[in-house]
């Protein structure tokens, strides 16, 4: 029982980060039908910015806003340089464009920094814990979960109560009709990339605090988690993306602690097998979005 509760807390902490990443992926999928394989590059770029700042003596308190700002800026630059040129292209083109962006960003750091892992100091409190009864809770997980809940509440407010949110949801539901109704497509798409950058930035802060290092290929892992979580939740559903993030985080933590030692190192493989099963029995993900085609 205690172990399960422990898993639950750990899983929620991990899942929170995945949920933020997945939501960022889902927002862009909504407005552009683009599944962004370059989403993790926001963390790569802001990771190098953090590394540069932290190793030149800047404190984490300043690094946090820096990471978020760099993430948003990178998201907007990528949209401008690459994605704005392929709007409305086929799924195939969109997917490979984002894959290309992923590689170009990675290659730039390979070319101009180095292929090796760069370390930077982690904030001291990251591994501190406190106890509730027999439970050991990390301060880090507590902060992650709280910040994520606040962020999700703010995003919900943004989407439900503001003009921008309404345009974004309208565009996600039916982009062409939204445009006909006077929604400015440029603003909505750029806004979506900024929002996605913000969410990746917040997730990136936590990701980097825990990792304490970065490298050219650092974006692969967060990208994969975000994209998979969005898919598990149901592509096209913002709520599904958040749900998918938490489900993925919980599944990883629970499996890692419950699997017998001999195959514990293969957790990722088992998680994937479960995801594959999910798609065989529930091909649209947890929250299936109807894709009615006009005939």
């Amino acid at each position: 029982m205690t172990e399960l509760l422990q898993n639950l807390i750990d899983g929620l902490g991990r899942g929170s980060i995945y949920a933020l990443l997945a939501l960022g992926v889902a927002v862009i999928f909504g407005v552009m039908h683009l599944l962004n394989f370059a989403h993790g590059e926001l963390i790569t770029v802001s990771g190098y910015a953090a590394m540069w700042a932290l190793t030149s003596g800047v404190s984490w308190w300043l690094a946090v806003p820096l990471i978020i700002v760099v993430s948003i800026a990178t998201s907007l630059v990528i949209e401008r340089v690459a994605f704005s040129r392929v709007r409305g292209a086929s799924d195939f083109t969109l997917l490979l464009t984002s894959f290309g962006v992923h590689f170009v960003v990675q290659a730039i750091f390979l070319l101009y920094v180095s292929a090796s892992v760069k370390n930077f100091p982690r904030p001291g409190w990251v591994s501190n814990t406190y106890s509730i009864g027999s439970l050991k809770v990390e301060w880090f997980d507590t902060v992650v979960i709280l910040v994520t809940l606040i962020t999700l509440a703010a995003v919900t407010y943004l989407l439900q109560r503001t003009m921008f949110g309404l345009s974004l949801r309208a565009a996600a539901a039916d982009f062409d009709t939204a445009r006909l109704m006077g929604v400015n497509s440029n603003n909505v798409i750029r806004g979506a990339f900024a929002l996605s950058g913000l969410l990746a930035g917040i997730a990136g802060v936590f990701w980097l605090m825990r990792a304490g290092q970065t490298q050219p290929s650092a974006g692969i892992d967060p990208m994969l988690k975000g994209v998979l979580a969005a898919l598990i939740g149901g592509l096209g559903s913002l709520r599904g993306a958040v749900l998918g993030g938490f489900v993925l985080g919980l599944a990883e933590v629970v499996l890692r602690s419950q699997l017998p030692d001999s195959i514990a190192s293969l957790t990722e493989g088992v998680v994937f097998a479960l995801i594959a099963l999910l798609f065989i029995f529930r091909p649209g993900g947890l929250i299936t979005v109807a894709h009615a085609e006009r005939v």
Partner: peptide, 10 residues
């Protein structure tokens, strides 16, 4: 169900 994008992620 969800188009070729989902298949690509798999």
């Amino acid at each position: 169900e969800s188009g070729s994008v989902a298949a690509t992620v798999i």
